[in-house]
């Protein structure tokens, strides 16, 4: 328990992953916790807050990466969410986008659903990521620096063990139309 309590929060892990990039990447977050904590970590017009279903952020990010090949894209998925779209890792590995990475934040619970434990709570996500992307393209957030991250080929996956939050993140406070319009402008600038 003491080991778990030393883990970073989801908000801090997201902020740390984004800070690895020399320029702000597009950040595509899954519904619920990831979207709430991404906004709490710092709202940016390049944030794309996905409204569902759980796990779709990796696929949405793949589509965005394909049409913006000169931009870096970071998909942010929880362990419960990614388990619902695990096949997207196979699709991404096959498509080989050179500008897409995945941040997997693993708190071992469905944070938005009364923190019910996820069925993947004992899964070794680092091993899963390495099965799809290889050891050189899947590593722990705690092992990365901006310099090291700059040398990692894409597609890549970052695994972050995080602490389960005692409360839900603040409400997003944006309508789908606002999200779409703001992101559309940012994606064209």
């Amino acid at each position: 328990m003491s080991e778990l309590s030393n883990l970073p929060s989801q908000k801090d892990a997201i902020a740390a992953a984004i800070a690895l990039y020399p320029a702000r990447p597009f950040a595509v977050s899954d519904i619920g916790s990831q979207t709430g904590w991404l906004k709490a970590a710092g709202h940016d017009a390049r944030n794309l807050y996905v409204s569902g279903p759980m796990g779709l952020a990796t696929s949405v990010a793949l589509g965005l990466a394909a049409v913006r090949p000169n931009e870096q894209v970071l998909a942010i998925a929880g362990d419960g969410a990614l388990a619902m779209n695990l096949t997207s890792l196979a699709t991404i590995a096959g498509a080989k986008p050179k500008n897409l990475s995945i941040l997997l934040v693993d708190n071992r619970v469905y944070e938005f659903t009364a923190s019910v434990p996820t069925p993947t709570r004992d899964l070794d996500w680092l091993a899963v990521g390495r099965a799809f992307f290889g050891a050189e393209q899947c590593m722990r957030l705690s092992d990365l620096t901006p310099e090291r991250w700059a040398g990692v080929a894409r597609p890549a996956m970052i695994v972050a063990d995080i602490a389960a939050a005692p409360a839900k993140p603040p409400a997003l406070g944006m309508t789908p139309a606002q999200i779409r319009l703001e992101f559309l402008k940012a994606s064209r600038s």
């Binding site: 595509v28 794309l48 279903p53 779709l56 952020a57 990796t58 696929s59 949405v60 990010a61 793949l62 589509g63 965005l64 990466a65 394909a66 049409v67 913006r68 779209n85 096949t87 997207s88 699709t91 779409r180 992101f183 559309l184 994606s187 064209r188």
Partner: peptide, 15 residues
């Protein structure tokens, strides 16, 4: 999976 396709299309359309 087909659900991924909808996500991929949404990512492009969002841009």
């Amino acid at each position: 999976r087909e659900e991924e396709c909808i996500g991929v299309a949404c990512g492009a359309a969002m841009a």
